[in-house]
Amino acid sequence: MIETPLAVDVAFWFFGVASVVTAWLVFRTDSMVRASFYLLASFVNVGVVLLLMRAEYLSLILILMMAGEMAIMAVFMVMFMMNPAGLNPMNMVHQHRASVAGGVATFVALGAVGVFARFPDRPARPTGVTFALGQELLGESMLVFESAGAALLATMIAAIALASSRGRYGQADDGSDAPAFDPDRPFGDAPPRPVASKHEEQAGKEGADDMHDMRNMDHERMA
């Protein structure tokens, strides 16, 4: 057991409950940008709870990382959503009841484990936490440190290779067709590329029927 002042207890429950509420709001709002930033709010609340649990470095670095990550999340939301602000309410949910049941069941099961399981009672000493982490990283867990670097490098290369539309050898999507933004011009603003491969014939057949509700997208070219 660790004795804590009342103010710390109050803050713990306030930010803990706030993190769950903002997490819930992520799926309840229509605006995709708001959803991203509710998720960020959930992370920041968890960050404050980590702070109260004396993991000071972890808490601050979580907030630092998630700020960038959620900004990117918002960008991708606006890139891929037909209706990023939820101006025309639409239902983007499937198997809703089963999902709610799954969520509740998971909560009950995990919560029961958390509340009723017996964990060893070995509280930590809250001093020199960052220093201990560094020593561990350079000592016994050195392999974690270096393999994290290698994993990050692999992710960088894989993500770039997958997502980049243009590589050293020209456009990556040569032979496929541009997204059909305009219903009158099924192949988008650009004329269809002259390279006609087998892949294009397949993709063209199934792509053109999607997204008829897209309107004029001219302003995206201004950025």
């Binding site: 470095y57 601050l60 670095i61 907030i63 630092l64 700020a67 960038g68 959620m70 900004a71």
Partner: peptide, 12 residues
């Protein structure tokens, strides 16, 4: 780290 986090959050 807190300074960096405040600057990073300013994106929002």
């Amino acid at each position: 780290v807190l300074f960096g986090a405040a600057q990073a959050l300013a994106v929002i």
